[in-house]
Structure formats: structure tokens, C-alpha cells
Design a protein around this nucleic acid. Structure first.
Lengths: 161, 161
DNA sequence: ACAGTGAGTTGGAAAATCCAACCATTGATG
DNA sequence: CATCAATGGTTGGATTTTCCAACTCACTGT
């Protein structure tokens, strides 16, 4: 992942204080991640994003606005007369690609029928896995322990099964 | 990630055929991933999930039902008289943990203020990164190429920026 | 007898989403 | 010149979801 020059405002969440909830507050609304997917694929224009995601155009407008406000995408004019715009990922938006990658991988793994998109890494099929940079081991549910910082929001019971 | 014994039905999606869209059709509704998060943390009872996510109880009921129908969680009775249940992750649900991990990591990286949950791997801080199992290199936007299988849904332009 | 726990239901208000149609600007076509 | 198509949206109104507070039911503990 990249590293932030400036960090984005953390949105308010309810329930357990959690970066997952905060992240989902920014990109968890309907169509938001699919819009990011299209932009990541290189489809930067409103019409292309609308067509490829299937999102209603008015909803897409509000999503693009809030993703922009959140600092995940940028709206850049590419011509005047008439004014036309395209959307680009910010560094933070780029950093959502691994999330999309993993969502795609989950679907490819667990859902019926052929995966509609194939990925190659360098020149071979991509076999992505989460690794720990410190020790080089694979990250599995068993080897990871969560430590909740906020008092009152304890975990109850073991992590697995 | 785990490997599927039986695969789950792929939900219908609009727009570009895509495993991301299909996955989000199952877990992309409001509160769904947060419910999975709580169950993954070991909080298996309805009240605990409701309290820790902040989800309205009626919505939580419908989410738990559809996650169960999708094959992501299981509802198991742990006593009769009165009938009481707890929720467990199926293997497919377990496999969503890396997705949650990455969402948390994105928030920890890009959002202001201290991350409310810390993770340790074995005995050190977790520094998770996506690696390719085939070649051992890190997976970055530059080194991955998407190949759309479905005709008519081409990618336009380069993957980056 | 009464309060408390656990797992929901219910009714009604509020918000979000969906859809089809519309608008404005400009360049190309007949 | 009238019209068409492309682009990037708006708009109004119907539909669907979500939210909230209160309620239920079946017990258990005091």
C-alpha cells in the first residue's frame, strides 16, 4: 500500500470504534466501490462509469461527489467548451485496489460459474495472498490477534469458528 | 484463503459482469460486513452484534437471514427452552476476514486519529501486504493486469492514475 | 412477584434509491 | 438551417430501505 502525505478526516461511526466501520462509511454505500472499480480500470468518464456499473445516474452523481469530498477520487476537467470532466483516483483511492482485488478473489473462489475477469501478475496468473512484512509468514485467522483499544468494546470469545 | 467444498450461487448483478459486484451483492448492504466483523471477533449473539455494530435490530435480523441464505454465516441453536441461537462463520465467511483486514488497514493508513484496533501476528505487530504466491513479489497496481472475459465490457485506458 | 436476558416483531416516520424524462453545450450530418 | 449524437449531468415522482421506539414471548434469578 501507499503511504499518506495527508490523512483524510475520519468519519463518525456508531457502535464499536473501528477502522472497518470508518472505511465503510466512506466507500460502503451502494455503487461507491463499483465506481472506484471502473475508475481503477481506466474508465474515467461519467457515462462509461454509469454504463459499466449500472448505477442510476443521479445516484452516481452523488457518489462521485462524496468520494471526491472524502479524498478518494479527483474530478479533473479535460476540456472546456463544453466543460467535460474525468475522474481519477487519488493515492488513497489507489490504495483501495487491494480491497477490490480481494473482493474479486473472494467471489472468484466462492461463487459459482467462471470468474468474469482474470488477473495476471507480471506474466503469470495472479495468486494473491496476505503476508506479514515483518516475518514473511502468511496471515491466517489463527496467527492474528485483535486488540481493542477503546474501553468497553471488548471481544468475547475466540477468534475462530 | 480457504478452498471451497461447495460453491455458493452467484447472485445476479447489473453492469459489467464482475466478481466484485457479485460479492458486494452478498455483503455490500449496510451493516452486513459489520455483522460479519463482530462474528469474526467472537461476538456471536444477536444482542452483542446489535450493540457492537449499532445496527437497528430489525435490519440486523434481515441481514443475518440473508448472510445465512448466502452461505456466509450459520445460525446454530445453543439451547432450547427458551430457544437461543448464535451465529458462526462458514468457511466462506472465514474467508472474508482478509477483506475486513484490508478495510481496517486502509482506514488505519488513510484516516485521521489513532486506529481503534491493533493487530498482532504471532508476537509482533501485523504488517500485512498482498503478495503473489507464484513469484513471491509484492502485488502492486503496476504489476497487475486485468483481462475482461465478457465481450462488450472492455476496459478503456491504462490501469493506473 | 418482579426485574432481567435474549432474540426478535411491529408500526409508522424518514431517508435513500430508482426510473424515465429532461436540459445545456458543442460538433457533425443532411 | 434543422436535426442528430455525445457528454455530463438535473428533475419529479414512485418505490424501497432504513430507522426508531416500543412491544412481545419465553424463560431465569432474587
Amino acid at each position: 500500500m501507499g503511504s499518506p502525505a495527508t490523512r483524510l478526516p475520519r468519519p463518525a461511526t456508531v457502535g464499536r470504534p473501528c477502522s472497518i466501520a470508518a472505511t465503510l462509511a466512506l466507500v460502503g454505500e451502494k455503487w461507491a466501490l463499483l465506481a472506484v472499480r471502473e475508475i481503477a480500470l481506466g474508465n474515467r468518464r461519467f457515462d462509461a462509469i454509469a454504463r459499466n456499473t449500472g448505477a442510476p445516474r443521479d445516484i452516481l452523481t452523488t457518489r462521485l461527489r462524496s468520494l471526491e469530498a472524502a479524498g478518494i477520487i479527483e474530478r479533473r476537467p479535460y476540456q472546456d467548451r463544453p466543460a467535460r470532466f474525468e475522474y481519477h483516483l487519488t493515492p488513497a483511492g489507489q490504495d483501495l485496489k487491494p480491497v477490490l482485488q480481494l473482493l474479486a478473489r473472494w467471489g472468484d473462489t466462492w461463487l459459482d460459474a467462471d470468474p468474469p475477469v482474470a488477473y495476471t501478475h507480471h506474466d503469470h496468473d495472479l495468486e494473491a495472498t496476505l503476508m506479514c512484512r515483518t516475518c514473511g509468514d502468511e496471515v491466517t485467522p489463527h496467527t492474528v490477534q485483535a486488540h481493542v483499544q477503546a474501553p468497553g468494546w471488548t471481544r468475547q470469545g475466540p477468534t475462530d469458528t
